[in-house]
Design a binder for these strands. Sequence first.
DNA 1: TGTACATCAGTGAACGCGCGTTCACTGATGTAC
DNA 2: TGTACATCAGTGAACGCGCGTTCACTGATGTAC
Lengths: 201, 201
Amino acid sequence: VPETVDSPRVRYRRQVRAEVLDHAWLQIATAGVSALSLKAIAAELGLTGPALYRYFASRDELLTELILTAYADLAQVAEACVDHRQTPVRQLEGLAVELRHWALARPQRYLLLYGTPVPGYRAPPEATALAGRIFAPVHAAVRALGDGQREQQGDAYLRSVTFWTRLHGVLSLELAGHFSGMDLDPEALYRNEIQSVITGR
Amino acid sequence: VPETVDSPRVRYRRQVRAEVLDHAWLQIATAGVSALSLKAIAAELGLTGPALYRYFASRDELLTELILTAYADLAQVAEACVDHRQTPVRQLEGLAVELRHWALARPQRYLLLYGTPVPGYRAPPEATALAGRIFAPVHAAVRALGDGQREQQGDAYLRSVTFWTRLHGVLSLELAGHFSGMDLDPEALYRNEIQSVITGR
DNA sequence: TGTACATCAGTGAACGCGCGTTCACTGATGTAC
DNA sequence: TGTACATCAGTGAACGCGCGTTCACTGATGTAC
């Protein structure tokens, strides 16, 4: 059996790329997107700045990869919540809970996708497709929910978007620290919002 | 009558300060907070960088002033919506509509307060007080709303916060451009969210 | 009204820092015969 | 198995840019006598 293994060079390349991305995430987690710097990453890896141009054509390309990775990761989380043995209600609850876990685990990653846009940066078209993959499970579950309540599909769409905006409303303010001085349990608030959409209205 | 008028120097100082702030807002509106630069503002005013240190102790102090101004401005808008001749429902509708106008008129100003926090910058304590002044009219109106529905005050608080998070959820995603490819009327969605809280649930 | 003085807005040079990106190069690693 | 060659990761110097901030200074404006 001829073991078709990647050549050492390919493996090495892949490993360095991964390390660059790891440190990029670390930078973002620490000081936000604006702190993302090729030279700084290189230094952390014990390399000089120009070395990274063997792996990424530019800072923007690195940023694009990070964004697409984040979208893909969240899409996978969302799709993993699709389980037709579960009721639509359970699926929506699961989606919301997983979204919150995902966001709280790495706030800056969530903000990279849904926070204030990076000025001067335009997301690639693939991002839209991935955003759709995140939304689809929500939409499907809400539609299934509506079947038992003989709803129009326009209503289901509005309801799905509302699900999304309500969760984002709580999450983004929580991540930005706007609840900090406010004698408030963000999780309870979040749970409340989940139920509000499921119950209807 | 001894006309106690400000001395020319004081007036001049005030005018230059105002011009600096104007150009600061212009920069923020154009390229976001991260683009805020003392040297660039000075250049636009036909001055050199160090000249601005006659007016602001540092970049952070300028940023603080901008943030406090924005909070104060929005607080005034909110307070202007308090009108006891109006029903609570009307007042809440007014508050929401005015908030949206305020946000859409200058998106970056809204994001400066409620968007992704500026890394490394800590808002001064006064900001919290002003944020309270913005929230108070909402809370008052929601309480008045609950009087006719014999509600606990804990519920009113939760409901007020929910009012805020729901509006923010729609607004922030709209401002970030996340609805752009989505066959969706943000205004209709927004109106829907206003009603959702007023109607209860 | 005129003169001496104090105030203070603004300059220009400089410091130290960081950034993305290019370019000619070295030297190690792989490949082909 | 050994040699010639091609590939390519990484370097170091450089470019041009921008930033916040300090400091000693000039010169105009205001104030006090």
